[in-house]
Design a protein around this nucleic acid. Structure first.
Lengths: 202, 202
DNA sequence: GGCACATCTTTACACTGTAAAGATATACTG
DNA sequence: CAGTATATCTTTACAGTGTAAAGATGTGCC
């Protein structure tokens, strides 16, 4: 195994788990390295053997978050009943997955889309994980446009879809939009209604 | 004036100005109360005579930001040539104003939409300023729907419009979307193209 | 002129991220 | 198996943060 039976077992994973837990409990503001170390039962500077600094720890968390987001979108798309048409409802499922993930992982989602690009480009794995999520959605959009014979540039449509879903998620997290205020029975329902305003077949 | 000729003149405005300047230069991360105090030439704890704590200072900044956002949207809507139809292009102008404001005031925009609702509700003036911006846009949306005889709930359409514009702004700030990658000549051009995907008359 | 009060300063404390140097157990080499 | 190198973790230290508490200082009112 190489790393298993060192001093701690493997500290890196334990630190990430503790950080994730604190993130969910106290938000990004309440996540301090010392608290992570305390909860893991280790000295305050033990992290620096596994992470360059705090930002790298957060970057790893965010990278995992993007992979979870991709998975969640796929799950939600698979859950929706597949019609004979093909991937019509798939797009709606992806949208639902995106927003529901944000709601279920508030602080993590904020972390993933927090800083400027400069902070992100420093961690190529993060950028790649983000691109994977985007690519999946973009392909579904272009495919849906092809099936429904919608004209227009595919990349613009994908950007529009992403923007709508992302903005809705953010506004919900901020408490500026809520399902009941919009007369929707459910958050998923709200997503369907809002995305229905996009003029390609969702 | 009452507050003019005290010790400093009026410190509150000076502190806000310094904070705004630091926010634009170093971002929200680099904005510390001590730096604000240093730049204003005052002791580190002088702020506490004018603001309860740091969050109140930031809340005032964000409140002003929402008012500036509203103004910018109106300006941009007024700039676009008014057609005989009425308020068709007005909606596009509002959208442009929203995104361009975000681009021109990166850190401030992030501050305005940063924390959870719990943090905001503590400062009612902030929530009101945000509502003012939203209401203006929502009314323009419902009016446009009436003119173009679009069916559907107005509040859902307004939420969709806001989501799209807000998401686009956020993704641009994150460096995940750029005008040239999308083949747009300009950021304003990109906004027009993306909002063109919404199926009510923009 | 004296009092009350708003304003600003001084001092202090707990907390943060992290650099530097020391301890320690594991892995590799002879 | 012995000994050295190396990854891992601890100790110590420092500059910086937000802010509470108490003291100083000028302003406006009676």
């Amino acid at each position: 195994m190489g790393k298993k039976a060192y001093h701690h077992g493997n500290l890196r994973a334990a630190l990430l788990a503790a950080a994730r837990e604190i993130l969910d409990t106290d938000g990004a503001e309440g996540l301090s390295l010392r608290k992570v170390a305390r909860q893991t039962g280790v000295s305050p500077t033990a992290l620096y053997s596994h992470f360059r600094d705090k930002r790298e720890l957060l970057a790893v968390l965010a990278t995992d978050g993007f992979d979870s987001l991709t998975r969640r979108m796929q799950e939600e798309a698979a859950r929706s009943p597949s019609e004979p048409t093909g991937s019509g409802p798939q797009l709606a499922g992806l949208a639902r997955g995106y927003v529901l993930f944000a709601i279920d992982n508030r602080a993590l989602f904020r972390l993933m889309f927090g800083r400027d690009s400069g902070d992100l480009l420093e961690f190529p794995q993060l950028a790649e994980a983000g691109s994977r999520a985007y690519t999946m959605m973009a392909e579904a959009v272009t495919q849906a446009m092809r099936e429904h014979a919608i004209a227009g540039k595919g990349s613009i449509a994908a950007t529009a879809a992403w923007s709508t879903v992302h903005g809705l998620a953010m506004l919900i997290l901020d408490g500026r939009v809520s399902a009941k205020d919009q007369g929707a029975s459910d958050d998923a329902d709200l997503v369907d209604h809002v995305c229905g305003m996009l003029n390609f077949g969702i």
